[in-house]
Amino acid sequence: MHFASDNSGPALPQVMEALSAANRGFAMAYGSDAIMDEVRAQIRDLFEAPEAAVYLVATGTAANSLALATLGQSWQTVFCSSVAHIHMDECNAPEFYSGGAKLTLVGQDDKMTAAELRASIEGEETRGVHGPQRGPVSITQVTEFGTIYTLDEISALCDVAKSYDLPVHLDGARFANAMIALGCTPAEMTWKAGVDAVSFGGTKNGCMGVEAVIFFDPKHAWEFELRRKRGAHLFSKHRYLSAQMQAYLADNAWKEAAVKANANAAHLAGGLRSIDGVSFMYPPQANLMFVAMPRAMHKRLFAAGAEYHIWSGSLEGDDPNEMVEARLVCDWSISMDEINAFLDVARG
């Protein structure tokens, strides 16, 4: 009954098989391997972007930080939501890799609105040389609270950014989960809506550790290559990144994994809705959710071996009915038996 994170689950079998196959013989280093040529073609085809510059790194933090550093300047600010991963969970890596660019937090929730973004942009470049200049906009999809921007919402944010000639980055650590939930194509959720660069996640959805960085305008290619090398994220034995991504994309494995993860979460959410005393902080739309449950219910679940994170509140306290909030995440590998066992314990 493991619902702590989709980072905690296993890699897809075909990804591990691909790593084993890539481990035979010799291959050119630093991304010059033949597998990477195939990956580049796969991603360009998938995103309907034949000229896109495509790169691989091992972590989402590297993908986001290096992409934003490439899109902006050290004297600029990056606009993002108040709970964006780049703000809450990357130890100031975007600021570090950009050489000092700051973050401007937009709104008070996980999703920015176009009006909030415009107001935040208007609030910068008001002090001439003394203040930060306007820089990239970064959108998180799926958001940190498990909700999803619609295509219209992404387009509206991009329209605002473009009206100030600002580039847009999409943090897609859970890209596949959002795309499946929306029933759209990768192109529709990115460049067709106005996105300039995307961190295309693999790790949370079945890879061992690989993320793609995609620039739809190849003018950014050389700068990213330099920043990746200087930032110590250019793998010498790059074929092991390439092999993961190749297997992830082959035969729609990435889509199937996201379908499973989303379906697991939907089943879990449906079961929790049927239990008295359980409520959702945000409507679950992909594969993670934030749930308020009575303290006594949490204690039963942890005693039964469930693993997940308390988000707000404490298990310590005298009132067994006090609501305590938790984050629950489903990956592709969780079985229906595990979910049902969790629900049975929750029901008491």
Rank of each mutant, 00 (worst) to 15 (best):
S82P: 01
A243C: 07
K219T: 11
H298Q: 05
N177V: 08
Y164G: 01
G277D: 04
A21M: 04
D33A: 05
R118I: 00
I334C: 08
A156M: 01
D171W: 07
V142Q: 01
S20Q: 14
V259E: 14
A53I: 06
V142M: 07
D171V: 10
W311Q: 13
M189V: 11
R24C: 11
R118G: 08
E90Y: 07
A161R: 00
V160T: 05
T59H: 06
A53Y: 08
A265I: 03
D159P: 00
A4N: 12
E153V: 12
E153L: 12
G172Y: 03
D337M: 04
A181Y: 00
C91E: 13
W75T: 09
A18Y: 02
V39L: 09
F145A: 05
I148N: 15
D109C: 06
D251E: 12
A197C: 13
Y248T: 00
A326G: 10
P132M: 09
S274Q: 15
M245G: 03
I339Q: 11
R273F: 05
A263Q: 15
A115E: 15
S236K: 14
G99A: 10
R300L: 04
E322R: 14
T147L: 12
F342K: 02
R327K: 10
L249V: 01
L268S: 07
I35A: 14
S74F: 08
I339C: 10
L249D: 01
M112T: 07
D45R: 15
P13F: 04
G25E: 05
T147Q: 13
G128V: 06
Y308M: 10
E124N: 11
A84R: 08
C330P: 03
P50M: 01
L157S: 10
Y30C: 04
V324I: 15
T104P: 00
A326F: 08
A292G: 12
D159K: 10
D165E: 12
L56E: 11
A292P: 06
A101Y: 02
H220T: 05
S120T: 03
C158W: 00
K255M: 15
L66Y: 01
S5T: 15
S32G: 06
A269R: 09
H2S: 14
F3N: 05
M88D: 03
T70N: 09
M245T: 04
S81R: 01
G305S: 12
G271T: 07
D337Q: 15
